[in-house]
Computed example of a mutant assay.
Amino acid sequence: MSYKSFPNPIRIIIRSSQELIIATAWDAVEFLRNWPACRDRAYRRALQHCLDALDGITSPKKAHAAFADAARQAGILA
């Protein structure tokens, strides 16, 4: 399986002092499984797009955009 690299990494802030770098759709799926915020529509869209990117159904660019949007809405995007 390919990890499907994002066009550029996404920095996430967790616990107000730690940063995490999400560089692939696989990294995003792993992070989404322990999502620290509300699992709203943006979260579900990000999870679906990242899983679809891993399956080759959608592009890593689309998964990247959905994950960044969910992180932004959750207030954890650095």
Rank of each mutant, 00 (worst) to 15 (best):
R39P: 08
A70S: 07
A68C: 15
I10T: 08
A66Q: 04
L32S: 03
F31W: 06
G75A: 03
I57S: 11
C50D: 00
C38G: 02
Y3M: 07
G56Y: 04
D69F: 08
I22P: 07
R45E: 01
A25M: 01
A42L: 12
K61I: 02
A71L: 11
G75H: 14
G75P: 05
I22T: 06
E19Y: 15
K62V: 00
R41C: 01
I12F: 08
W26M: 03
L32N: 10
S17W: 07
P9H: 12
W35H: 02
Q18C: 08
A65W: 08
L47Q: 00
S2T: 13
L51I: 07
A65P: 01
R15F: 07
Y3L: 04
L51Q: 09
A74I: 02
L54V: 04
L54M: 12
I10H: 11
S17I: 03
E30Q: 03
W26P: 07
R33P: 09
P60Q: 09
V29A: 03
I12Y: 06
I10Q: 12
N34K: 10
T24Y: 05
I12P: 04
D52G: 13
C50R: 01
W26V: 00
P36S: 01
E19A: 14
S59K: 07
A23I: 08
F31H: 13
H64V: 01
A74V: 09
F67G: 00
R45Q: 01
A65F: 00
F67D: 01
R33M: 04
Q73K: 11
R15N: 07
E19N: 14
P7I: 12
K62F: 00
S59W: 03
R11N: 12
L20M: 15
M1T: 10
D52T: 05
H64G: 00
D40T: 06
Q18E: 15
I57M: 10
I12K: 08
P9W: 15
P36Y: 00
Q48S: 05
C50M: 02
A74D: 09
G75Q: 12
W35T: 05
K62Q: 05
L54H: 12
